[in-house]
């Protein structure tokens, strides 16, 4: 499983990355959490309002700081 956090590096993006790592840890998943900061890649997902959460190439949510619980839901879907 691959979790990507899209965002140019604003404080909210950093917090989202932490939440995502926590969510993966709490669910005990074997998932890789990576940060995507390059604009071309963010846009390639069609996301205009970072930060965004992408799970296995699928955009799960955009535009705000999702909580650990919400990210857990994204991971279980």
């Amino acid at each position: 499983m691959k979790v990507e956090i899209l965002g140019p590096g604003c404080p909210r993006c950093e917090n989202l990355l932490e939440n995502a790592q926590k969510a993966v840890e709490e669910l005990g998943l074997d998932a890789e959490v990576v940060k995507v900061t390059e604009m071309g890649k963010i846009m390639a997902y069609g996301v205009m309002s970072p930060p965004a959460v992408v799970v296995d190439g699928k955009v799960k949510g955009t535009g705000r700081l999702f909580s650990v619980e919400e990210i857990k839901r994204f991971l279980k879907e």
Binding site: C10, R12, M39, M48, S49, P50
Partner: peptide, 8 residues
């Protein structure tokens, strides 16, 4: 927010 100005 300012951080989304570029992608927008």
């Amino acid at each position: 927010c300012t951080c989304s100005a570029c992608p927008l």
